[in-house]
Amino acid sequence: MNPRVNRRSMGGLIALLFAAIAGCVAGGAYDGGVDVGYGVDFYDAGGYEYGGWGPGYGVGPPRRGFDRGRADGRGAPHSAYRPASPSRSMPSLPGRSRGR
């Protein structure tokens, strides 16, 4: 076996392993590497579009005392979730201000 070939092979192996280790150190959590930084190091998928929003598209919280309407404890037809009891009033945001 040629000693130069051996040295070259070992050198290549070391370089390969060094690259692998460096990749693990530098990689972010979402890229499959070891997470050594802040765990929220990612971008979202994008594609946010808001066409179709407008009057009738309620997105905010209901105010305190909001009428639950036809609530019968069954939720939407075939709802996957367990709806709150009909006796429960619609929750809202806290009313107390800070320091009061």
Partner: peptide, 21 residues
């Protein structure tokens, strides 16, 4: 989980704990 009546025909649901939305 509270279903919120809506006028646009789509489903709107509210998540609550401790009686707060």
């Amino acid at each position: 989980v509270f279903e919120i009546p809506s006028t646009d025909g789509s489903t709107h649901v509210l998540l609550s704990t401790e009686d707060y939305a």
